[in-house]
């Protein structure tokens, strides 16, 4: 294979590789965060309810604690954004022809 053949091979621009990996990292990162936070299959919560019992009366009551729990809308949005970003790097526009007739 000659040096001229190497020069003719299509190359991937560095920014495409970077964005491709960045997209995958975002998708995996959002999924990992959602999974580690408790696999909440409901909407995002910014406080969680904790049930407690009053000893004398036996009444069960709820207290709230500030705690961010990502929901399915964050999972879907984050993973979709990451995958679309990665997929976008595969799109190649045809180069404009410089030839004139």
């Amino acid at each position: 294979m000659s040096a001229a053949d190497h020069a003719a091979e299509p190359t991937i621009a560095a920014w495409r590789v970077l964005l491709r990996f960045l997209g995958i990292i975002i998708a995996l990162g959002v999924f990992s965060h959602w999974y580690a936070a408790g696999k909440n299959t409901g909407w995002t919560k910014d406080r969680i309810a904790e049930t407690q019992v009053d000893e004398i009366t036996g009444i069960e009551y709820v207290t709230y604690k500030d705690h961010f729990l990502p929901g399915v809308e964050i999972l879907a949005g984050g993973v979709a954004f990451g995958l679309l970003l990665s997929a976008a790097t595969f799109i190649r526009l045809k180069p404009k022809s410089n030839t004139t007739r």
């Binding site: 299959t41 909407w43 309810a49 009053d54 009366t57 009444i59 009551y61 709820v62 399915v72």
Partner: peptide, 23 residues
Amino acid sequence: PKGVNAVSFHLDSLLEPIAGTAD
């Protein structure tokens, strides 16, 4: 005086019920 009194409410909804309390 201990603040345990509350009314709980629950409505079925898409994905998960809307549930909460009023204390």
